[in-house]
Nucleic acid binder design. Sequence first.
DNA 1: CGGTATCCCCTTGGATACTG
DNA 2: CAGTATCCAAGGGGATACCG
Lengths: 117, 117
Amino acid sequence: MEALRADMFEEICPSTLLPFKVGGDKWAGMVLRCLEGGPRRYSELRVPLARISPKMLTQSLRSLERDGFVRRTEYADPARRVTYELTGLGRSLLEPLRAFCDWAEDHWDELLDARES
Amino acid sequence: MEALRADMFEEICPSTLLPFKVGGDKWAGMVLRCLEGGPRRYSELRVPLARISPKMLTQSLRSLERDGFVRRTEYADPARRVTYELTGLGRSLLEPLRAFCDWAEDHWDELLDARES
DNA sequence: CGGTATCCCCTTGGATACTG
DNA sequence: CAGTATCCAAGGGGATACCG
């Protein structure tokens, strides 16, 4: 077994870019998953994400937009209308994200057991 | 496109268990990756993780131990000796974790570009 | 409808010094 | 060597009310 390198994480490490840090906040992952099925309106997102305050949802969406995962579109309809949808980058992120969710489901019981004791 | 379910995230969502939340703190992922190669001593971990204060490293390790990802072993050597190593659960987590790191490396330039603008 | 604004708490985590 | 103890700052994030 070889020794660990001293500079392994001197620069910004790729793992610091994991989804919930990429987005910048704890809700980013859920927001992304809510956008899997196509563009969604703000009020539509508030349904599955009812536990997020409007402030945090906006903040999360803005953050995801800044980082290039989500595209915000404003329509000039008579009634105001805004949609959010995944960019190519955002969609590419869904793959590893799903891998994680699958892993969590597969090991759900083990995780709970470990927590118990 | 079907409507989003209202109860999608009512219970604790699997995605909230993502690696950096599973561990509980921002360093957990890096710690896990440092343990890929086998058992490591505390002081050994401090080398690649030089930016983490001893307090945070301990806290992170304790958290990973509680959650069943890491096993702490104390030896009764004359000189004090403690090692940390991945459990089966911990090793299983490395897979999706690596998937993420790979993704981050693959999209590194895009990520930086998005950040710029 | 799609958000802002404000207030406030509380945890996260950094620095530093110390200990069995 | 393998941690603790203490202090402190920053900001993440919740609740609520309001706005164009």
